[in-house]
Write a protein that binds this DNA or RNA. Structure first.
Lengths: 198, 198
DNA sequence: CGAAAATTTGACATGACTCAACTGGAGTGG
DNA sequence: CCACTCCAGTTGAGTCATGTCAAATTTTCG
């Protein structure tokens, strides 16, 4: 993966949403750096003080949270052209409250909090892009929350399959269980149940 | 409540976050209109086609969702200087997927989707204010989601009491139960249990 | 091939739900 | 000012989805 190709992909993402001058494009290029992640590598890790946001160029990632009993809760899976970040989940002690891990080998363009603020200053148009992106993300998270509190694991599973067909080929089963908010054992039983009932 | 006072309150909210010219202030004044809500009145209602966003001037509101079995799930309670809105929760059929109701008599400054987009065009600085506000909201919702999936009702109750002391004087018990994601009966039993164990 | 990880299965425990009945307080109207 | 109604809250008994712990089995991958 050439860094230039990755940045073109990012610029295309922005240019689909807002017009950019040559100079603005250059500021964006300068602000992001390409990183490679091997399978199971971390983009950021819960408890560690690195504040960043990333644009996924290729690969699949999972963003998750370790609760007080150290069990993992998958917040979301992320794919190319999505954003992952922990800038908005930092504790006051400046540690990340989430982890992001590569599920397969992949690339992401990263930016830290300071450079990000600087970039917003240089290219204010990006405020708009991120406002709209955040509205979308908020809406998706809100749906996820409401589905979680208003339905059982089986309904959530069916919804996931509709929304992300092929997810089961990409992601191990115990992580799907975690995304659904149940244990691998419960998920295994639920699938068996579904096969019978169908 | 004078409309002018309400708008000053809104302008103060914005001016604490970004500098505004006289002209920009006027655009903002023009875009919002003050509405009064009696106790139990709706700002917007699930299933109805009204897309708006509101800045709470006074009063307390609850934003909630009716699931397929018609049971209510409180998403959040909202207080003065907060935003409530359904613009980002519209279905493709243009109906709201949430309701917002006044828990007591109160005022809010409302703006619809079209005027809001127009206002962003006239005062692009607001993109920044809303981007940052949305980051905060996203972060709060994310914490709420993670708390919901990683702890039981008792822990969520304790967290709520820490974060919003006095909430129990403002909000009827069955709505707190709904916020916590349990039934009123379960909430009642839980409280009894807590009293004994203490 | 062999170790480690993922998945399945079993037996049992539990938190929250369901449905139904009861209590108590707030408001309303005669 | 009492009687009545209504709604919020409480209590009880039984059920169910999911969790817990432990072990067996299968898959993955160095």
């Amino acid at each position: 993966m050439r860094e230039e190709d990755a940045k073109l992909q990012l610029l295309n993402y922005f240019k689909a949403r807002v017009e950019l001058s040559e100079e603005e494009e250059q500021h964006i290029r300068d602000a992001y750096t390409l990183h490679h992640f091997k399978k199971k590598a971390f983009v950021f890790e819960q408890g560690k003080p690195t504040s960043l946001e990333g644009f996924i160029v290729s690969g699949t990632f999972r963003v998750y949270y370790n609760d007080s009993k150290a069990s993992e809760h998958v917040l979301y899976f992320a794919f190319p052209n999505w954003w992952i970040g922990n800038m908005i989940t930092f504790h006051s002690d400046q540690t990340s409250s989430l982890s992001a891990q590569a599920l397969e080998e992949g690339y992401a363009l990263l930016i830290n909090k300071v450079d990000s603020e600087e970039l917003f200053r240089k290219v204010p148009k990006l405020e708009r892009v991120f406002r709209i992106m955040l509205q979308k993300s908020f809406s998706v998270l809100q749906k996820r929350f409401l589905l979680t509190v208003s339905s059982n694991a089986e309904e959530r599973y069916k919804e996931l399959l509709e929304r992300s067909p092929g997810i089961e080929q990409l992601v191990p089963q115990h992580q799907i269980a975690s995304y659904l908010g149940i244990l691998p054992e419960s998920f295994s039983r639920m699938k068996k149940q579904l096969l019978k009932g169908n």
